[in-house]
């Protein structure tokens, strides 16, 4: 998985991106590179992952919608804890993130 595909390294107003400390999180068991200080949902976008959960009844894919912790579409299972808003939860090295797949879990 390419690390920098969706990362904005150069920016005409914000300049060069300062290198944060790189950490590794696991999405459904697969390793993903992330940068310390960023929320899980952002790290997933950077890795090109847009699905945060499957809806409970119809199992439709959902993704982060508001990025400010209101819509709850980005809720995932983090280190075993369900319903964690990943747009407001920062990555930690070794964190295990799982995609909720409806009520069937």
């Amino acid at each position: 998985m390419a690390f920098n595909n969706f990362r904005i390294l150069q920016h005409p107003v914000l300049g060069e991106k300062k290198n944060g400390k790189e950490v590794r999180i696991f999405l459904d068991g697969l390793p993903i590179h992330a940068v310390e200080g960023e929320p899980i949902a952002a790290a997933l976008y950077a890795a090109g992952v847009r699905i945060t959960r499957l809806s409970p009844h119809k199992k439709e894919p959902r993704g982060a919608f508001c990025m400010i912790g209101r819509c709850t579409e980005c809720c995932m299972i983090v280190d075993g804890e369900p319903n964690v808003r990943t747009c407001r939860t920062m990555v930690r090295d070794g964190m295990r993130v799982e995609t909720p797949r409806g009520w069937m879990e």
Binding site: S55, P56, H57, K58, E60, R62, F65, C71, T72, E73
Partner: peptide, 8 residues
């Protein structure tokens, strides 16, 4: 379509 996203 689902109008209420949470409860579908």
């Amino acid at each position: 379509f689902a109008f209420c996203r949470c409860e579908e």
